[in-house]
């Protein structure tokens, strides 16, 4: 599994804190620990999903990897074209810029992610232009090819985004992300703003493109059904930390962290015969500016013991490729989703 040759991206101890400022002098009075010591890797050609509820730091993590925001601490190793692992966490912007063609992003909101004042040709062609494809005809051909790849008519090139529906705009966004032949594509909730009947089209497209182009996806989502459908491995985040990470089958079939168990059981299943005995978590998601002691999940955890409120659990590999941060990972037997 963890064959070192295959690793495309490796994140070690990533932290991102946002200062809380108060008063006229804007003094820093605290920190929001949005991402707190996150470690994971992605292999070439696979899909890793980051799941969790709002505020768990999954989006912040993905933006740090893209260097859309600067991480507070930690290392992000990305395999460059020269096949060496380069730590991009602390590189200056000028050295990140050439790497941008290797990692691209698909946005959540198909309406705000396309500049309404530019035609499809300009939108999809812009990454090509800034990376040196100055010939207009060449660019136009490439844009036509890309539009075709995502299932859009090349004749639409002269149109503006307002002529398209959410699903079509998302396809345009995907075409733009693919323009530079990236190796890593970060998809931040790419289907959550779409209608149910359109979601499936986009998911199919993403899977098809991965097969065709050998893409690697970092998929950020909160919808577990979508995550299960698209990913090979899943990392579950809670208040800035990864609590569990394993293959999709193991996360869904045999979770080892109580939070994963509760999360799985909370998802309403589209079958009235499966009205389950849900585990309804009490209380609220912890505040990342003021997290509880020990394991951040312990106030809501029904298996919590004394040690959980005192010591922070460390991430350990309980089985090959199955990482859990829980004091009781070895003794608990948790409920997953029954396989049919």
């Amino acid at each position: 599994m963890a064959n070192m040759e295959q690793i495309l991206l490796e994140v070690k101890g990533l932290q991102k804190f946002f200062p809380i400022r108060r008063g006229i002098l804007q003094r820093v009075v605290g920190q929001v620990r949005a991402v707190d010591d996150v470690t994971f890797h992605i292999n070439q050609g696979e899909t890793l999903s980051l799941v969790g509820e709002s505020g768990c730091g999954k989006t912040t993590t993905s933006r740090c990897i893209l260097r859309a925001i600067d991480p507070t601490a930690g290392e992000i190793y990305f395999r460059t074209d020269a096949c060496e692992m380069l730590n991009i966490a602390a590189l200056p912007e000028s050295r990140v810029q050439p790497l941008r063609r290797c990692m691209q992003m698909i946005f959540q909101d198909p309406f705000s992610s396309l500049n309404p004042r530019m035609t499809l040709l300009d939108i999809v062609g812009e990454p090509l232009l800034v990376h040196g494809m100055t010939d207009h005809q060449e660019r136009q051909d490439r844009v036509a090819e890309l539009l075709q790849l995502v299932g859009m008519r090349p004749e639409y090139m002269q149109r503006f985004p307002h002529a398209f529906s959410g699903g079509q705009r998302q396809r345009i966004g995907i075409a733009r992300a693919l323009a530079l032949n990236p190796r890593l594509v970060v998809a931040d909730e790419p289907v959550s703003a779409l209608d149910v009947s359109v979601q499936a089209q986009i998911l199919n497209l993403l899977l098809k493109l991965q097969d065709q182009l050998g893409l690697t996806y970092l998929f950020v989502a909160h919808d577990l059904s979508v995550v299960k459908h698209i990913s090979e491995r899943v990392a579950v985040m809670y208040v800035g930390r990864i609590v569990e990470m394993a293959t999709t089958e193991e996360i869904f079939g045999a979770p080892r962290h109580p939070y994963t168990e509760a999360l799985l059981s909370s998802v309403p299943k589209p079958d009235p015969r499966l009205r389950s005995q849900r585990i309804v978590l009490e209380g609220e998601v912890a505040d990342p500016a003021n997290p509880p002691s020990g394991c951040y999940f312990h106030p809501r955890c029904r298996y919590a013991t004394d040690i959980c409120s005192e010591e922070t659990p460390v991430q350990e590999e309980v089985e090959t490729g199955h990482y859990v941060a829980c004091h009781r990972a070895h003794e608990l037997s948790l409920r997953g989703i029954a396989r049919q």
Partner: peptide, 25 residues
Amino acid sequence: KALLRSIPSIESTPRVELPTISGSI
């Protein structure tokens, strides 16, 4: 029928192509 088929379910088999409803609303 199509709507029920097209939603990815937490119960269903992963990474297979979902039947879709063509077009959009």
